[in-house]
Design a protein around this nucleic acid. Structure first.
Lengths: 203, 203
DNA sequence: TTGTTTATTAACCATTTGGTTAAATTTCAA
DNA sequence: TTGAAATTTAACCAAATGGTTAATAAACAA
């Protein structure tokens, strides 16, 4: 039975990911996770101790997806406009793959801000933002783009990329588009959003 | 004791709003709401029957704030650029006043999409979007703005306005700004976002 | 083969939670 | 003043929930 180890563990993680990302920490049920994984509830505790700990693992995972490549692209040594195109395309591709993830992460950070503050302390954020800031300032000085703070630009980029996924059910209703067409719209945004941003800032 | 009616009712609603918007439907506790309102838990049920019904009331309220003036501005008979400025300013002003509201609404719509679909059936969305669409198409034909679908433009406007409030705790961490400075940034966005959008679409 | 370790389960347990009930208190009209 | 109606509370209740335990089954090393 020892070979089943990884198998069971993985099944639990999969079920937990599904439960937590769709219902949140307080909405998810351990019994549900066990049922979905096709095992006894006690086994979930056997493998992962408590709900909190299991949740922390899932959060870590999803949080990683959220920020993994962003820093890399942001600090890459490429022209600004190209960088914007890459960040947007990367964001939207990742979000298309894991559509529940951003709302999940946002929720849990909102409900427990201390968690993220801790995690961020170990990341070289300042380096990333300072690097980006420098590139922006240079472009402004060159007269290639209008005057804008790198913080605000970063917020705009992430807003345009992420929000349509976070608010998907609402936007689908307002705009009265079905699932298929919404996905098509998101694919179009991979290019159109970058163009939108570049047009907004170039002189 | 009859005069206390409105008073108690309002105290409960206030406590419920606080609980639901900060912790969501499943995270909020009836006992908590009663305690915050300074009354017995049974009284909450006396006035509002069930948790679900109380929640529905609060949701209705918050949802109203979300969409109240938007339709009015969108269908107003004013130039496009002016309209964009007004929508953004209105959005950000409202969101500054009720910062928990958008995440709350988005969450509950995500968890129960049927609810919003029902509600939207009674609203003249098609009229609003068709109206806006027409204005966009005219501006494109005039050559005043670039070619863009009104849906995508609407998504961009709402993304830039709402997302910074939805993701506030996360953005505060990433950008390492404190509460006061974040508020200042949001105030600046009332104008800068409109300019950003107009620059993005004008020819 | 056998004894030890690991994995899995059924049955429980304590706590929390939404909700109810019956009694007490207050209000107010007659 | 009195009695019915409305308001408020303390004490409960049943169901749900996270978690534990003790026993069983499987895996494996000797």
């Amino acid at each position: 039975m020892k070979k089943k180890d990884k198998n069971t563990e993985e099944k639990i993680l999969q079920a937990a990911r599904q439960a937590f990302t769709s219902k949140g920490l307080s909405g998810a049920r351990m019994q549900d996770i066990a049922d979905t994984a096709g095992i006894n509830k006690a086994l979930v505790h056997y493998y992962f101790d408590s709900k909190e700990k299991l949740f922390a693992l899932i959060f870590e995972e999803e949080f990683g997806k959220f920020f993994s490549n962003l820093a890399a692209v942001l600090t890459a040594d490429i022209p600004l406009f190209e960088k914007i195109e890459q960040v947007v395309a990367l964001d939207i591709e990742r979000l298309s793959q894991f559509p529940d993830m951003p709302l999940f992460v946002i929720n849990e950070v909102s409900r427990n801000p201390a968690m993220i503050v801790e995690r961020f302390k170990q990341l070289p954020i300042k380096k990333v933002t300072a690097n980006f800031q420098k590139q922006i300032d240079e472009e402004i000085k060159k007269g290639a783009i209008k005057n804008i703070s790198s913080d605000q630009l970063l917020i705009n980029i992430q807003s345009l990329s992420i929000f349509p996924f976070v608010a998907k059910p609402m936007l689908k209703s307002v705009l009265q588009v079905n699932e298929k067409n919404y996905k098509i719209m998101m694919q179009m945004r991979k290019k159109s959003v970058a163009t939108f941003i570049i047009d907004a800032i170039k002189t």
